[in-house]
Structure formats: C-alpha cells, structure tokens
Simulated scan of single mutants.
Amino acid sequence: MSNNTIDTAMAKRMLDASAIQGASIIGQPGGWGVMLKFGITEKPLGAQRTDQPRVWRSLDRCMDYLKTELHITRVDLLDASKHSDASDKTSVRKDTSERMRQAHAAAAYNKWFREQVQASLDDPSPGIANEDVKQNFAAKRAALKQRIAGNKA
C-alpha cells in the first residue's frame, strides 16, 4: 500500500476484511475522487501504479467503478462544493496526438486494403482461368517427360 492513497487491490482486501467503514465522493477540479474511511483515517482511492488520487471526469463512471469493482453501493457523502469540469493541470499526454494520428492512418490503410481485396474478389476476370492453367501445365509436364525420356536413351 502506498503512503498517500489506497490502490484498488488493497481496497478490495480491506473490504473483504470489513475494514472499510465508508466511502465519500469528493468533487474537485477536473472530476471526482473517492475517499475511503477506515478507523479514524480517510485516504483517497489511488490511481493505478502511482501514489496519486484517482479522478473520474464523470460522476456516473465514478459510481459505476465503486459498484462494479469494489462492490460499494452506498456512499456516505457526495461533496460537489469544489467540483469543476476544468482541471487544474493538463492531463493530456504529449504522445496522445501522435498515437491518434497513427491510429487514424492505420484505420485509413485498413479501409483501403479491405476495399482492394473486395474489389479483387468481385472482379469477374481476376486472372487466368483454371482450365487455361491446367492445360498450360499439362503441356509443360508432357514436354518435361519427353526431355527426361530423351536423356535416358
């Protein structure tokens, strides 16, 4: 367990041991956080792999997470006094635009590729007819057999 927050795995273990006595949803700039109460102490639910409090942009998603992941269906307090949609800090990763550009390029290529394959499948004369191929290779086999027979003699 981290020093400042409780991660989801620890919260689940504490809930199984009936150590969590309550939960509160607290509004803050940029979204909603969860405070878990155990004993006389309250700590925020932490983000994965960090010691930072987890923040949900949507109150519905926050409550859904509590219900589905932690099986908490009742909150003791909902404090929206400090909530605002604008975040104090920009949480956009610097590589997000590059990832999105690559995702759009990949989707465009995938669409183009599928169109090309479908066009080839729909083409009534995509290449050499099977009968022509069979006749061509039959002639080549016959010529090769004659050549082999000529070398043996």
Results as ranks from 00 to 15, higher is better:
Gln21Val: 01
Lys89Tyr: 11
Lys111Asp: 11
Ala153His: 13
Pro53Leu: 07
Ala19Asn: 06
Arg61Cys: 08
Gln102Gly: 01
Ala139Asn: 13
Ser125Leu: 05
Tyr109Glu: 11
Ser120Phe: 11
Asp76Leu: 03
Arg141Ala: 12
Met10Pro: 00
Glu42Asp: 08
Tyr65Trp: 14
Ala142Ser: 15
Asp7Lys: 01
Gln28Asp: 09
Asp88Cys: 09
Asn3Leu: 11
Ala103Thr: 09
Thr8Trp: 00
Thr41Asp: 12
Arg114Val: 13
Pro124Ser: 05
Ala105Asn: 02
Ala47Pro: 06
Ala142Met: 04
Asp51Phe: 07
Lys94Gln: 09
Arg54Ile: 00
Ala142His: 11
Ala143Lys: 06
Lys12Tyr: 00
Asp123Phe: 05
Ala153Glu: 13
Lys37Arg: 13
Asp16Asn: 15
Gln102Glu: 08
Asp79Gly: 12
Ala103Ser: 15
Leu36Ser: 07
Lys89Thr: 04
Lys37Phe: 03
Asp122Glu: 08
Asp51Thr: 05
Gln28Tyr: 00
Met63Arg: 12
Asp7Asn: 08
Glu131Thr: 14
Ala86Asn: 14
Gly150Ala: 11
Asn4Lys: 08
Gly46Tyr: 02
Lys89Pro: 00
Asp60Tyr: 11
Lys82Asn: 10
Asp122Ala: 04
Lys134Glu: 14
Asp132Tyr: 06
Pro44Asn: 11
Arg114Thr: 13
Pro124Glu: 08
Arg114Leu: 14
Asp16Glu: 14
Ser18Val: 09
Lys111Ser: 14
Val117Asn: 07
Ser120His: 05
Ile6Asp: 07
Asp95Tyr: 06
Arg49Asp: 08
Val117Phe: 15
Asp51Leu: 05
Glu115Ile: 10
Ser87Glu: 03
Ser24Ala: 15
Thr8Asp: 02
Asp16Ile: 04
Ala106Leu: 12
Trp32Tyr: 10
Ser58Thr: 01
